[in-house]
Write a protein that binds this DNA or RNA. Structure first.
Lengths: 190, 190
DNA sequence: GCTCAAATGTATCCATTGGATACATTTAGG
DNA sequence: CCTAAATGTATCCAATGGATACATTTGAGC
């Protein structure tokens, strides 16, 4: 017999997706950290242990959220004729400033995870592939890789210094402009 | 009457210093994270609550450790005639690779802490002052500041990408060489 | 349609951890 | 000396990630 009229069915149906979406939404709303497993479960309407059917432990949840983040980042990078070194940089930087908490989470992972070993996850590989393509000016493979990492490092580093408070910019917009100016002036992207 | 022959006196004498030194030592030995308050207290030989006489909460302890880190970093930067843009970069990079856990902790702080607001802590200011002096080539104040942050951002960013696993270097030494090469090739430091 | 095993979710328990409060022990200044 | 402030301890608490056992659904094969 069906349990008395409860709006929620016993099986959620898409717990994993709902969990990831809920975490991303929270980070978007300004939360700096992952919610507790219990908070997250409560928001979705399940017992906290239910989440462990889909994530081995909390770190696995974090990894999955980070993977979502890289997928969202890839979505910010234009394709086709609009794929240029500058548009990659702009998409990357705008994503970082739009979703600072998510961005931080994505790059806070230890090695042995997503970005590395034995090969980066597909979401990360897509971002790297797009960037490599955009920066490919016909010079050798190594020269292109060097420029990609220099530009990536500069953007990532300046953003992180801002996040840590070292840039001491009056507003996020000014920080964005400052960082973009430094990248343009570096000559890494025309 | 004195408590029966216990080697440890009731008062430690320099708990704060001992605590900071113990944490730094642990990070140096490869621990990635801060120890728990209890572990730390046990190592020093006091009850865990004793530490709260010196640190408001665990975050305050973290901040203090980070401040120690910046002081150690400043110690890696040469003074006098050896203070050049390149020597600053080398000191900075070597510190990061020598003490990756401590380095990460130093830059993992939120804003409103040490690096920012209302003004960076003295340990951080010293590092910035040395870098600014080393990069001062007589061009305007703003141009110097721009170059300092570009170089800092590039070094910090590439190091963090390596730490996250994105560089996929075969060894720390190769990563170090790669990063140094990118910085030299940037033209930010001669 | 039925039945039963696999999938999914719940209830309950546990150890660890950061932190609070009350009390004990020293130390030092008048 | 004596006592107040400083320093450290004992003990308690709530939150949290995680484990184990059990309940509910679902669906594949007969």
């Amino acid at each position: 017999m069906p349990k008395s009229d409860s709006d929620q069915p016993y099986h959620h149906g898409s717990l994993k997706e709902a969990a990831l979406a809920a975490v991303v939404a929270r980070l978007r709303k300004g939360e700096e950290e992952l919610p507790t497993v219990r908070e997250l479960a409560a928001e979705i309407g399940v017992s906290h242990r239910a989440l462990y059917r889909y994530f081995a432990d909390k770190d696995a949840l974090k990894q999955a959220v980070a993977a979502e983040g890289f997928a969202l980042l890839a979505g910010r990078i234009p394709v086709g004729v609009d794929l240029t070194a500058l548009s990659v940089i702009d998409g990357f930087l705008r994503f970082a400033f739009d979703e600072p908490s998510l961005y931080r989470l994505m790059f806070s992972l230890r090695s042995t995870a997503l970005l590395a070993e034995p090969v980066p996850g597909p979401q990360v590989r897509r971002v790297i592939a797009l960037a490599t393509q955009a920066f490919d000016d016909g010079a050798g493979e190594e020269a292109v890789r060097n420029r990609v990492f220099s530009a990536w490092g500069l953007a990532h580093g300046l953003f992180d210094l801002w996040r840590a408070g070292a840039l001491r910019a009056a507003s996020p917009d000014l920080a964005y402009d400052f960082i973009r100016a430094r990248i343009l002036e570096s000559g890494l992207v025309d």
